[in-house]
Design a binder for these strands. Structure first.
Lengths: 347, 347
DNA sequence: TGTCCGTGGTAAAACGTTTTACTTATACTA
DNA sequence: TAGTATAAGTAAAACGTTTTACCACGGACA
């Protein structure tokens, strides 16, 4: 590999001059500038990354810590982050914490376990001297990832930061629940069942709160018996569908597509059909929802939006002096209802 | 950040000693060793990455170039690679080339475009001085990614290397086609339609060749009219299903699950049902295939296997002296038929 | 004439490791 | 006893940049 020193010799100048030409920190006469540039181009010289990193304090690398790459939300978020950073001439380095147990189909929600993986991940990134860190969660909740006195800019993506210092980017669950209820009411439904997520989950609570607000506004009754709590998995959709149908609801709002698929399972087994015998709505717009029969009406979470928004903020923090840890700021990315065939208008 | 020098002062020894304790290159008396280790632990000292990289030639980083992170095959492959590398104390750095056009739902298969993205990606990784590079393709074909005289170990994952030097890891398409045909024949089918991929595609050709071989062995007729070429997308499954059903086949082997979903679309529209009116088999075992009704029997590609196998090989190249570019070696990872409800036994 | 300033350049220090070559003390051998 | 080997440790060089402090020169100005 050719070094700056060799370039300097070829041009008959000092290395300082080469450095100045390349970084533009100081003026260099046009003549030498051209000479240097020519040689650099001809030789294909590339500054040694480590020497640079050692000298400057900046590395132009943004570290990304993902809770789990396998989780369906992660790739699109991370892809967008990487793309944006690349466009802004930042590199990214990704650490995958593998917190999702694929076989058990469940998160390691043991906080101790998380911390025991997170700590080395962070210190690894710090030792590489990344300029900033983005924590990409796999499911929304309050997550304790950075200490209050964290040394470099950091933001929390797709979850709420526990520390009241850090900016987080989340989806607007409240509005999501609200919109879906409005929509179902606008389709004439007045007995709307809900297959919610786990009861103590943040998503669940916020969506439900938005949901109730919309019902109230629409003067449609809210009945606690029509709300059942599942575990986000297909099986619970199946089971709770039966319970709700017994309650004679005309529509079911499932808080994720996975559970909606479970409802479809139940309908299929009982010779019923979504959008005819009962209306079904989902949440997430997972890939599968377009493949269900009939195709599932659902609330799309735009992971790309989340990714872009977070990356923008991060870059802003690194260039425009946006302060990521001044005080908690929560950026909400809206959802969007994708109307397909599983909700029918009644009355 | 605490430096080696400070540690040295605290321990009352020289930096060389610290280095020797940490790297174990030379013997250090047990007493000082312990003393140093204690201080290191207490202070949480971490060697500066850049200083290390500058001094040694090795960085313990493996570069991963992904054609597209969004492609469904990529995350599981990459996840496994990262996991294995991490276990073996290697870091990874990922560059995503974004070669898949999400909106057009198609690959940028313009070779020039690919090269124009690949070249900077490689030179970026080289400038970071990664120890090795893994190229993770998004769909199998012959790919021209590394020059014959490439400086560091490199392998091609999920595609065939154009250069006859590099090891590649691919799925065993021939066996995949063979197994599926065997299976369908064993279920009593003798008029088997095929919805193949694009005609010139490597996957298509190999699977078809395996397929024909099995038919021959099973003394089941092969009729070119029963083989139709699609474009891997849902729409072509829909269209070709109609054509094949008109030919009175009893089973259709689709070369991916996406097209199988298209077949399901057709059946649904015409009041037919897979596994009852006709048998359908897919390929890939995408997530959706378990959600189709009835669930799709398909040939699973184990992306995890591919990831693990490639990572193993890569690490072996870096430690045991396995030579990645001695001569083309093609590692084939087998598929596995996942029996669900879309193929019925006849006769 | 002397002072000041701007321009274009350079030498050398600094960044934090690893490694080489050297030192000292002690034990062993002939 | 002299010589040699071994063990434990250190000083200093080296890695390739960026940056600081300094220099030389020429022109403008009082």
């Amino acid at each position: 590999m050719i070094t700056q020193k060799e370039i300097a010799q070829m041009c008959g100048v000092s290395t300082s001059t080469i450095s100045n030409v390349l970084n533009g920190k100081r003026k260099v006469s046009e003549a030498t500038r051209q000479r240097v540039l020519d040689v650099v181009k001809k030789t294909g010289y590339q500054p040694n990354y480590f020497a640079q990193g050692m000298r400057k304090q900046k590395t132009n690398i943004i570290g990304i810590i993902a809770e789990d790459l396998i989780q369906f939300s992660s790739p699109p978020i991370i892809e967008r982050i990487m793309a944006y950073c690349e466009d802004m001439h930042y590199r990214t380095i990704l650490i995958n914490m593998r917190m999702y147990d694929k076989w058990l189909n469940t998160w390691y929600n043991d906080e101790k376990k998380l911390q025991s993986v997170l700590k080395p991940a962070i210190s690894e990134l710090l030792s590489i001297k990344v300029d900033a860190i983005m924590y990409v969660a796999g499911h929304a909740r309050v997550v304790n990832c950075f200490p209050d006195d964290f040394e470099i800019p950091a933001i929390v993506v797709y979850a709420y930061s526990k520390s009241p210092k850090f900016t987080s980017i989340v989806i607007d669950d409240e509005k999501g629940g609200y919109d879906m209820a409005k929509y179902l009411v606008s389709m004439g439904h007045e007995k709307i069942g809900v297959i919610a997520g786990t009861a103590d989950n943040l998503h669940t609570r916020k969506r439900l709160s938005g949901f109730r607000k919309a019902l109230k506004e629409g003067k449609v009754p809210y009945n606690p018996k029509w709300v059942r709590y599942g575990d986000w998995k297909r099986g619970s959709g199946h089971q709770l569908a039966e319970e709700l149908i017994r309650e004679d609801v005309t529509a079911i709002f499932c808080m994720n597509d996975e559970m909606a698929a479970g409802v479809y399972d139940y309908l299929y087994e009982n010779g019923m059909k979504a959008g005819e015998d009962i209306s079904i709505a989902g949440y997430d717009n997972m890939e599968i929802s377009g493949y269900l029969k009939p195709a599932l009406t659902t609330n799309e979470i735009s992971f790309s939006q989340i990714g872009i928004k977070s990356a923008e903020l991060m870059i802003k923090a690194l260039t425009d002096g946006y302060e990521t840890k001044k005080g908690k700021e929560i950026i909400k990315v809206p959802c969007r209802i994708i109307e397909r065939d599983s909700v029918k208008r009644i009355k």
